[in-house]
Simulated scan of single mutants.
Amino acid sequence: MGIRALFHLLLVLLFSALASTHANTEGDALYALRRAVKDPQGVLKSWDPTLVDPCTWFHVTCDADNRVTRLDLGNGRLSGRLVPELGKLERLQYLEVYMNNLVGPIPKELGGLKSLISLDLYHNNLTGTIPSSLSKLTNLKFLRLNGNRLTGRIPRELTKLGNLKILDVSNNDLCGTIPTSGSLSKFTEESFVNNPRLEGPELMGFVRYDVGGDCK
């Protein structure tokens, strides 16, 4: 075998090994989610950890490099929790887990999903605060967290999301004031309504003020 052919073979083996490593890492991350939820309708039945490539699983979309780019788990009657391992899906663009019965916090590790375009967690029973780490999602266009039980302030760091086109945090229990600078300045009252403890010019119609230190 010539040197050039040997070099080509080594490259093929290297890329194959890298692809397998990524598949194992992403498969492990997805299987962590499967273990953390109850699935009465068998939505995740095909998520078999003995299969090296998670791209063969239902509701999982991958790119040409067999990297996970989309999870479509909306309206699946899933209950349980989101897991921090989801932050390992480096090329994930769409995380769609809306209209389920998920509880617990939004993992701060989701802020590591640098390719994310859409984060749809609406109509669950999620609690805790909106992680400020979501401000790292510079490609994010759609952020829908409405219809949960989220508390605390709207992180001011979210004003850095320059590509954001849709924001909906309505129907939660958020408090404090509504950030009005940067990307959040373009959203109307509809994005924030039905948070009884939330104050701000978009809702109150006058100069924004802070409600103090009792916002939790």
Results as ranks from 00 to 15, higher is better:
Leu14Val: 10
Phe15Ala: 07
Ser20Thr: 12
Ser20Ile: 10
Thr21Cys: 11
His22Phe: 14
His22Pro: 07
His22Val: 15
Ala23Phe: 09
Ala23Leu: 11
Thr25Leu: 15
Thr25Lys: 13
Thr25Arg: 15
Glu26Lys: 06
Glu26Ala: 07
Gly27Cys: 07
Gly27Phe: 02
Ala29Asp: 00
Ala29Cys: 07
Ala29Ile: 05
Leu30Thr: 03
Ala32Pro: 00
Ala32Asp: 04
Leu33Lys: 03
Arg34Ile: 07
Arg35Ser: 12
Arg35Lys: 15
Val37Tyr: 08
Asp39Phe: 02
Pro40Lys: 03
Gln41Met: 10
Gly42Trp: 00
Gly42Glu: 00
Gly42Cys: 01
Val43Pro: 05
Val43Cys: 01
Leu44Asn: 06
Lys45Phe: 04
Lys45Gln: 12
Lys45Ala: 14
Ser46Asp: 04
Ser46Gly: 06
Trp47Ile: 05
Trp47Ser: 01
Trp47His: 04
Pro49Asn: 07
Pro49Phe: 00
Thr50Pro: 04
Asp53His: 09
Thr56His: 12
Trp57Ser: 09
Trp57Tyr: 01
Trp57Cys: 01
Val60Phe: 05
Cys62Val: 03
Asp63Arg: 00
Asp63Lys: 07
Asp65Arg: 11
Asn66Val: 04
Val68Arg: 06
Thr69Met: 08
Thr69Asp: 01
Arg70Asp: 10
Leu71Gly: 01
Leu71Arg: 05
Asp72Asn: 11
Leu73Arg: 04
Gly74Gln: 10
Asn75Arg: 14
Asn75His: 11
Leu78Asp: 03
Ser79Trp: 03
Ser79Phe: 02
Ser79Pro: 03
Arg81Gln: 14
Arg81Thr: 15
Arg81Ile: 06
Leu82Lys: 01
Leu82Glu: 03
Val83Met: 06
Leu86Ala: 01
Leu86Tyr: 01
Leu86His: 02
Gly87Thr: 05
Gly87Ser: 00
Gly87Phe: 04
Lys88Ser: 12
Lys88Thr: 03
Lys88Phe: 06
Leu89Arg: 01
Glu90Asp: 13
Arg91Gly: 03
Arg91Asp: 12
Leu92Asp: 01
Gln93Trp: 02
Tyr94Val: 10
Tyr94Phe: 15
Leu95Phe: 13
Glu96Asp: 11
Val97Gly: 07
Val97Trp: 05
Tyr98Asn: 13
Met99His: 14
Met99Thr: 13
Asn100Pro: 07
Asn100Thr: 08
Asn100Gly: 09
Asn100Met: 00
Asn100Lys: 00
Asn101Thr: 09
Asn101Ser: 14
Gly104Val: 04
Gly104Asn: 07
Pro107Ala: 04
Pro107Phe: 06
Pro107Ile: 02
Glu109Trp: 03
Leu113Val: 05
Leu113Asn: 08
Ser115Lys: 09
Ser115Glu: 15
Ser115Phe: 11
Leu116Gly: 09
Leu116Ser: 02
Leu116Val: 05
Ser118Val: 11
Ser118Phe: 06
Leu121Thr: 10
Tyr122Gly: 11
Asn124Asp: 07
Asn125Ser: 15
Thr129Val: 15
Thr129Tyr: 10
